[in-house]
Nucleic acid binder design. Structure first.
Length: 850
DNA sequence: TTAGGGTTAG
């Protein structure tokens, strides 16, 4: 078939341009080598039409079959990187392969050009296919083939393909070539195989600046920027002068480390080297300053920049958007649009839309969306994903759904954005429905859903979903574990907690400060302060949240003394306390009965640390004084408060009145409470309990009647016990557990042995007006007793029994637990709604102070 | 021929 006929299917060729008569130097070289100046002109082409015109000319001169010509046409096309030009390149290539009879060095050049072209535009799979075709046609790849190919494998994250390329390089003995080795280092690092990347580097006899830069950049990107910096010094020590690429990698390592002083030293070093700043370096520098929080310096450099690249604008905007400085991001966009700046591209729009999401800027968000549509960016899913997120953050679930429904190519991110959007709009049901419908769920999807369940306190469901995730073979990361740790903590499931901790270590899940803090908090809430402190002591870096978790663990244990010590250590380490920390500390001091220290801490808040106590801190103080029986002082404290006492304050006083049997003050507190928050169930229950424990049944009836009228329901007491990783929950008088017959049998046996040991049931703890015999029966069926009995029959001898109670433990159950530990020689740990009780050998860790 | 800057969802 004639060449002209074949080419007719390609983009049409208009008038043939006249060739310039005067030739440039490089054109002369091309002409002398190939007798065709047209070939030399190919690399100047700006459109496919120009390429195709030159191609026609080359055909006329009879050189179109020459490999040198074909390779240059292919390169010119792939450099243009449009779908049409790539199709053209492929056709020219196919035609060449069909007609080529003798295989020589020239053919290799053609194959290499297409592999290079495909790799450059990111069509990695096509690059790999050309290599396959090359080998099938009996050609042996050369040292130029492998770097192109490896770059393609890297881009497509094709680890298996890359390994085969490495194998092929070994077979052809080209794995000793420094270019091939450099490409291998880059490939292994980018695919996450740090060990093999390092191995290739270690085996290199000669390393150049690219080898070092590949290694340094590999570590900087694989979350080890610290190592990247130290390698940089090794490189300088070995006498290799860094170039601008190396410096860009080092600057971005500083950004990752958020180490401003190091970043500034690097900038000074660049100055000393006399390296000229290019756009890459300027951009990396501005990015570094912004990531380190030095927005002023970044802005100064940005403003002083005469030619701002598109990427620079995008860097500035995305940093502003990510840091919640959405207004600045939008201002930058406006500056870009109003001046002579570059035209916004998809990345610009992405940042703009994300900034609108932060600002809840619906109107501007809509116009960004419209701009993206007008400029044909809708083919790019990320823009639409960000748009879904933006509409969701603006509360426009309907608009978000519309965008989603109209999307031609939905990705997992699109689904995830929708799920997260519904969660943020408090529509868990829709989120769960979409989560179920998703064609594919990734780690992000699971993390979103598990996190949402934890947020709404559906801890058991969260754990259940975590188990499903694992059954489906999805490996959790540190974000998953933060949520799961939080759920474990609230459930008090120590067995599961220990598993989570082990899992983290065995799977080498990177434990950052957030995850460590979650672990400390988890162990603290699960009644394992030793493990909590073990994790805490191993933390390399501790912020105020970490210290708060540790102090919280001490509060749960009732160890006010240790909490105070931790606080002093924290101050000595130079960490500034915040409001939340003082809540934890005051709670710990309250549980430990340390009134004097509590007062002094409370006073120091304002005087020493400049934090004015909030109503929550005041609540802690009322609790501290009340628990210690200093009811009058507590009342005086309330009266002296600057802000109006709220329901929490009066509830704390009421609770103390119950503990210390002060009916008069209880009524006063209850009256105040009733005025403030008559519909809160806990308060009425507390009051009726106070009357009940004093046997004032007519008053109890009055409160109960009021509760009924107001539609308030008493929260039933419930206790749970963890048996081999499963949570068993019991409510008072429960009859539904499958093993209830055994449990009641066990309870009867315990009660017999307790009576023999002289234990009298504390009938005051029964808050209903029933006869003595029934009272005893009711008391014996309290949820914590059911849980303890079940723990005794279903766990091995000497195994501690761990119970989590949703309300405060009653006096009879407290006494019951103490005796059980003595008679059955078992440890019992009960977490009620405020702290832990460790029972052992007939005693409780709280010293009966709770 | 190899290495470098900006990209949405938890």
């Amino acid at each position: 078939m004639a060449v002209a006929t074949q080419l007719s299917t390609l983009p049409s060729v208009t008038a043939l341009p006249e060739l310039p008569t005067r030739l440039h130097q490089h054109e002369k070289r091309a002409a002398s080598q190939n007798s065709a100046p047209a070939i030399g002109l190919l690399k100047n082409c700006k459109t496919l039409n120009e390429v195709s015109q030159l191609h026609c000319h080359i055909i006329k001169t009879g050189l179109s079959g020459r490999s040198f010509a074909v390779a240059n046409i292919v390169s010119a096309c792939t450099d243009l990187a449009t779908p049409g030009s790539l199709a053209y390149a492929q056709k020219v290539f196919e035609q060449y392969v069909d007609e080529e009879e003798d295989v020589d060095d020239g053919s290799l050049f053609v194959y290499n050009s297409l592999i290079r072209g495909y790799s450059q535009v990111g069509l990695s799979q096509s690059a790999v296919s050309v290599h396959v075709q090359m080998v099938e046609n009996g050609l042996v790849p050369d040292k130029y083939t492998f770097p192109f190919l490896l770059s393609a494998c890297t881009k497509m994250n094709g680890f298996e393909e890359g390994l085969q390329v490495h194998g092929a390089a070994v077979k052809t003995s080209l794995d000793g070539d420094v270019y091939v080795q450099n490409s291998l280092v880059h490939f292994y690092f980018e695919c996450g195989d740090v060990a093999d990347g390092q191995k290739v580097f270690d085996g290199m006899p000669d390393r150049n600046v690219v080898s070092w830069t590949s290694l340094i950049c590999g570590y900087a990107r694989r979350e080890n920027p610290r190592k990247a910096v130290s390698l940089f010094f090794d490189m300088v020590d070995s006498g290799i002068r860094p170039n601008s690429v190396t410096m860009v990698c080092i600057i971005s390592a500083c950004s990752k480390l958020q180490d401003l002083s190091l970043g500034e030293r690097v900038c000074a070093y660049i100055n000393n080297l006399g390296l000229k700043l290019n756009t890459h370096m300027v951009n990396a520098t501005v990015d570094m300053y912004m990531k380190c929080g030095a927005f002023g310096t970044a802005k100064l450099i940005f403003d002083g920049c005469e030619e701002r690249s598109l990427v620079l604008y995008n860097t500035v905007m995305s940093n502003y958007a990510r840091e919640g400085m959405a207004k600045e991001a939008i201002d930058t966009l406006n500056e870009m649009l109003s001046g002579e700046g570059p035209r916004p591209d998809r990345v610009t729009l992405l940042s703009a839309i994300s900034a609108c999401a932060h600002l809840n800027e619906l109107v501007l968000g809509k116009s960004c969306h419209a701009y993206a549509l007008r400029n044909e960016m809708q083919g790019w899913e990320s823009i639409l994903n960000a748009t879904i997120d933006m509409y969701m953050k603006c509360g426009e679930t309907g608009l978000a759904c519309k965008v989603f429904e109209r999307m031609p190519n939905r990705t997992t991110v699109s689904w995830n954005s929708l799920v997260a959007g519904y969660i943020n709009n408090s529509d868990l049901e829709s989120a769960q429905k979409i989560f179920q419908e998703m064609p594919e769920r990734d780690l992000f999807s699971w993390n979103t859903m598990i996190g949402a369940l934890v947020q709404v306190s559906s801890f058991e469901e969260a754990i259940e979903l975590f188990r499903t995730m694992q059954r489906e073979g999805i490996k959790p990361d540190r974000v998953t574990l933060v949520s799961v740790a939080s759920a474990c903590g609230y459930l008090g499931a120590l067995g599961l907690a220990k598993w989570v901790h082990r899992y983290m270590i065995e799977n080498q899940i990177h434990c950052d400060i957030k995850l460590s803090t979650a672990m400390v908090d988890m162990f603290g809430r699960c009644g394992d302060p030793q493990s909590a402190m073990l994790v805490f002591n191993n933390m390399k870096e501790r912020d105020v949240s970490a210290w708060t978790a540790a102090i919280g663990a001490m509060a749960m244990e009732g160890n006010g003394r240790r909490a105070m010590e931790l606080f002093r250590e924290m101050i000595a380490e130079g960490v500034k306390p915040d409001e939340v920390l003082f809540v934890g500390l005051l709670t710990a001091l309250s549980h430990g009965g340390m009134v004097e220290e509590g007062w002094s801490i409370f006073k120091s808040m304002e005087e020493t640390y400049g934090i004015s106590p909030s109503i929550v801190h005041c609540g802690c103080m009322v609790d501290l004084l009340g628990r210690a029986g200093m009811l009058e002082q507590a009342l005086d404290f309330i009266k002296g408060m600057q802000s109006e006492p709220n329901d929490v304050i009066w509830a704390a006083l009421l609770s103390a009145c119950r503990k210390h049997n002060n009916l008069e003050m209880a009524s006063y507190a209850a009256e105040r409470l009733d005025k403030l928050n008559p519909y809160k169930s806990g308060i009425s229950v507390l009051l009726s309990n106070i009357y009940a424990s004093e046997g004032k049944w007519s008053d109890v009836a009055k409160v109960r009647l009021q509760m009924k009228e107001k539609g308030i329901q008493k929260r039933p007491g419930s206790s749970s016990v963890e048996i081999s990783g499963r949570i068993h929950e019991f409510t008072s008088g429960d009859e539904f557990h499958p093993e209830m017959r055994h449990i009641t049998g066990m309870l009867d046996e315990i009660n017999c042995r307790l009576r023999d040991a002289g234990h009298e049931p504390d009938l005051k703890a029964v808050l209903l007006d029933v006869d003595e015999e029934n009272k005893e029966l009711l008391l014996s069926r309290h949820s914590e007793k059911l849980a303890i009995a079940y723990g005794l029959i279903s766990t091995g001898h000497k195994m501690p029994i761990r119970v989590v109670k949703n309300l405060r433990i009653c006096s009879d159950c407290h006494a019951f637990a103490k005796l059980v530990t003595a008679i059955y020689d078992r440890e019992i740990i009960i977490r009620d709604n405020s702290r832990f009780h460790f029972f052992s050998q007939g005693l409780c860790s709280c010293g009966d102070y709770w």
